[in-house]
Design a protein around this nucleic acid. Sequence first.
DNA 1: GGTGAAAGGTCATTAAG
DNA 2: CTTAATGACCTTTCACC
Lengths: 173, 173
Amino acid sequence: MAIDELDGRLIELFSAEPRIGVLEASRRLGVARGTVQARLDRLARHGVIRGFGPQIEPAALGYGVTAFVTLQLRQSRGHDPVAERLAAVPEVIEAHTITGGGDMLCRVVARSNRDLQRVIDVIVDVQGVERASSVISLANQISFRTLPLVRSAARTREDTRIRGRARPRDGDS
Amino acid sequence: MAIDELDGRLIELFSAEPRIGVLEASRRLGVARGTVQARLDRLARHGVIRGFGPQIEPAALGYGVTAFVTLQLRQSRGHDPVAERLAAVPEVIEAHTITGGGDMLCRVVARSNRDLQRVIDVIVDVQGVERASSVISLANQISFRTLPLVRSAARTREDTRIRGRARPRDGDS
DNA sequence: GGTGAAAGGTCATTAAG
DNA sequence: CTTAATGACCTTTCACC
């Protein structure tokens, strides 16, 4: 979905001050309240805004260790049943199937390095998992962010308006 | 920070229905209004709840391709200046320094596989980056989640209360 | 627990693509 | 003709006392 500069400012504003409310936001942005409401609805409807749920920090809960675990699976089974079993492990907070030598990449957290060993043992014990190799995150240099992306998407859109023509469209290669 | 079962239910409730409000939450949980407010304040103060900002979905913005890029850096320089330059690339939405063969692991998004090539080129051009190897996410089997962790943390805490003694504490190994 | 203030939902009207 | 923006009305909820 394409977003314009107003959408971008709206997202930035609500990111900076989530408790601001629609009315105050409309004042700050200099548009009608209904406009803000309509924009928010549209962004939510198109899935750009997934929700306003509380963002939980695992480290603050005691899970200070983050690791990325690459799994090799047994060929016999598909990815899905493995993912289903991994989903039963609370410490596995993200999982992707990937290209390359590995079959899956998981983000896991643990209370300590020793605890990480336990978590990895649990993962390796999952049916269909052949072996696991993990790297530990030493520092989170850039923590998950989407605002630069939003700005970029909004600016691109603005460019097309200013320049009067669309940028060359990327198609999947 | 340790959380109890009420904290857990509170977080789950606000995750499911963020716009619920303090008053309604107190009704649902069967506690006083002030209690909910105090709990929320405490969770926010301790950093467990980072905020209530909108959660943006890059894919909905047109960034449908996700990749994990492992970087080897030139030994001469530290990680920080590289991270700083990577931060200037909007498509780099996360970066960690890591153990193992690589020096850094980045999560990047792109509009297409062709666009990913462009992003990787930009990353490789960053001063201090020796080489980059990337794996593409084919499917997001488990998308970033923290609720199981919250439940686990709350349950553990509840266990200690029920069983009357603390679990053996994990110290970093 | 009551009260003032403000939020959100909805609508008709108007403007623009 | 479809989509979006605006201002107004009304009901509900919140935070403060």
